[in-house]
Design a binder for these strands. Structure first.
Length: 105
DNA sequence: AGGTTGACTCACC
DNA sequence: TGGTGAGCCAACC
């Protein structure tokens, strides 16, 4: 297939695989690092369709405001296990402290 | 071929 | 905080 997301998805996966334990990245940042700055929505599409056999820490990808995936209750638990902390009301990841600073590479 | 749909983001209020 | 509306763009009817 020649769908753009086939190539795109591979690059997205490659980025997500590199997110360190205990850190998160926004869809937008993943899109930028994958080389497609305006395709944050497609990152969501790609991650929603990750093959089940593929081991990928996609729970470490959140919205730019730090929100979690709606209706994916397991995600918060996974992040808890990595000692990722949330804002007082618990709706947002504390991005100030837990967003991966990939600029340091 | 064209409208609808998002695991999105940003600006505003 | 929280809602809305516009911009985004390929997949999917």
């Amino acid at each position: 297939m020649t769908r753009i997301t086939d190539i795109f998805s591979e690059q997205v996966y490659a980025v997500v695989e590199q997110i360190p334990f205990g850190k998160v990245l926004s869809y937008k940042s993943v899109a930028i690092l994958a080389g497609y700055p305006r395709h944050s929505r497609l990152v969501g599409y790609a991650l929603r369709h990750v093959p089940s056999n593929r081991l990928l820490p996609c729970h470490r990808v959140v919205t730019s405001s730090g929100r979690l995936v709606p209706y994916w209750t397991e995600q918060k638990e996974l992040l808890y296990r990595e000692r990722v902390e949330f804002t007082s009301r618990g709706y947002y990841v504390d991005m100030k402290r837990f967003a991966w600073q990939y600029n340091d590479l």
